[in-house]
């Protein structure tokens, strides 16, 4: 995760990213920006989901409800941090003319969302009684 620390510095030092390579076609930068925004929306949707679990499943036991809500909120935080990190990495790769970075995050998030969805189904079926 040393790469992450290096990227973290880049977030707040825009002039440093300009030092590297050359400016790509602005359309590529805009496409990268839209991808970043799509991930940010995913993060906001996860946060909204956390609120929704807390608000719209009031019959659940406290532990389950708060646990699920916090899991969704944590996923939202991770997703948004990863969004900006991936955006910086893509921007830098385009400037240097390298291949775009690959990531296992989409698959990971997909699995996590599936697990949370299954947990919700189980909890709603079982927790309703308890």
């Amino acid at each position: 995760m040393t790469g992450f620390a290096r990227n973290l510095r880049l977030w707040f030092a825009p002039e440093r990213i300009r030092d590297e390579g050359r400016t790509p076609d602005y359309r590529f930068s805009l496409a990268n920006e839209r991808t970043f925004l799509a991930w940010l929306r995913t993060a906001l949707a996860l946060i909204g989901g956390g609120f929704a679990v807390d608000q719209f499943l009031p019959d659940l036991r406290w532990g389950w409800r708060v646990g699920l809500a916090l899991a969704l909120l944590a996923a939202g935080v991770l997703c948004s941090l990863r969004a900006v990190n991936h955006w910086v990495r893509c921007e830098r790769a385009m400037r240097r003319g390298e291949d775009l970075p690959v990531s296992r995050f989409p698959a990971l998030l997909g699995v996590v969302v599936a697990v949370v969805a299954v947990a919700m189904v189980v909890v709603v079926l079982v927790g309703w009684e308890g």
Binding site: L10, W11, F12, A13, P14, I17, T23, Y26, S29, L30, E33, F36, L40, A43, L44, I47, G50, F51, D54, V66, A69, L70, L73, A74, G76, V77, S80, L81, A83, V84, W87, V88, E91
Partner: peptide, 28 residues
């Protein structure tokens, strides 16, 4: 159009993260 600056992107993400933190405070 000028490219999005990392500072701008980081600020947007910071808002999102802070929202999640507030949400955690509200849920608990």
């Amino acid at each position: 159009p000028p490219a999005l600056t990392p500072r701008h992107a980081a600020a947007a993400v910071l808002c999102t993260v802070a929202l999640a933190v507030c949400a955690a405070a509200l849920v608990l």
